[in-house]
């Protein structure tokens, strides 16, 4: 079987980097939007805020910037920003308090870790599938993983 790998070259990459102040006491929240990424913008925001919450950069009860403020700072649509917050709320990462805005919700740390574990498993699954296509065996794959793992450690 022939395998076609298609690379997309983006000729121009626009990245809006913004540090948004989330509250007086808390540190600025970092969100980077890439227009070259195939992922929808709302998804990029959702993922980055989730990360901030999982890594503990954003703590329970921390306020999020208002939807309109974030949209203005990132120069993106209000609807896109609302969608990102809706996803976060659906997954239980944030709570909306009527009239007061959005806050980081109480988190079940173990559950979060488990979710992250799943993500790692999925990515490894992809790697295994790709390796099988190319006829790379388990031992070779293990070597690759070890190499990468140790490299990351240094």
């Amino acid at each position: 079987m022939k395998l076609f790998i298609i690379y997309t070259v983006y000729t121009h990459i626009t990245i809006n980097t913004i540090n948004t102040i989330v509250g007086e006491k808390s540190k600025p929240m970092k969100i980077i939007i890439s227009n070259a990424s195939p992922d929808p913008i709302y998804d990029q925001i959702t993922r980055q805020i989730k990360n901030h919450i999982i890594t503990g950069e954003m703590q329970e009860g921390d306020p999020l910037p208002s939807i309109r403020k974030l949209a203005k700072e990132l120069q993106i649509s209000v609807i896109t920003t609302s969608r990102a917050y809706e996803e976060l709320e659906k997954e239980g990462f944030i709570d909306t308090v009527g009239g007061k805005g959005c806050f980081v919700a109480m988190q079940n740390k173990e559950l979060l870790k488990e979710k992250r574990r799943k993500t790692v498993e999925e990515i490894l699954g992809d790697a295994v599938a790709e390796a099988k296509k190319l006829g790379i065996g388990l031992s070779e794959l293990r070597e690759m993983l070890e190499l990468l793992f140790n490299y990351e450690d240094e």
Partner: peptide, 13 residues
């Protein structure tokens, strides 16, 4: 044009 985006963003607050 970018300045205009900022102005519109401000109005939409």
């Amino acid at each position: 044009r970018r300045e205009l985006l900022d102005l519109l963003g401000e109005i939409l607050q």
